[in-house]
Amino acid sequence: MSYDEKTNGQMDAIIARYPRSRSAIMPMLHLIQSRDGFVTPTGIEFISEKLGLTTAEVYAVATFYSQYKRKPVGEYHVGVCTNTLCAVMGGDAIFAGLKDHLGVGNDEVTNDGKISVEHIECNAACDYAPVVMVNWEFFDNQTVESAKTLVDDLRSGKNPAPTRGANKVSTFKETSELLAGFNDGHAEEGVQAGPATLLGLKIAKEMGAQL
């Protein structure tokens, strides 16, 4: 059970963020996923030793949150929102279409390990419905066809840019390091806002609002 020096240092940096060390569990679990691709028993043991907790205490946290995976996901983890609004607007059709196109079920990975698909709950982008997330980057206003093209491009290494996000989609492991709270330096990329975000402002200006 060991991780390299860099990982160990990052774990210490995470613990230093908090007044009490136990608060570090969640970012540490994200960091384990950035190294192992999912939450491994080795990772759980490592965290428990670092924080002086039992492995059961760490497992209890790891199994509560849906972003912590108990088995490997694809290099690109695709989430299709099927909460009511997105589902009605086409999310159900997109999810069905993607499963069929990739030959996988919910929470399964393609044979080449590239793509996994999961139906997700509301991702706070309802004004861009239906929404598809790839490694938690926004792909707005999707259709069945655009979502199929998206996964095909990801599989063939084209790496399309998110609608509102960085210039390209990071891998699941890279994203997990970001979610452990380590800045990947891509904050300046991408738009500041999409058209729906700006709609009210645009209309206000047309109406002569002085800002």
Partner: peptide, 12 residues
């Protein structure tokens, strides 16, 4: 945790 780019912008 499901909003990568917002996380980036906040960290920066």
């Amino acid at each position: 945790g499901e909003v990568s780019h917002v996380v980036r912008r906040l960290l920066q």
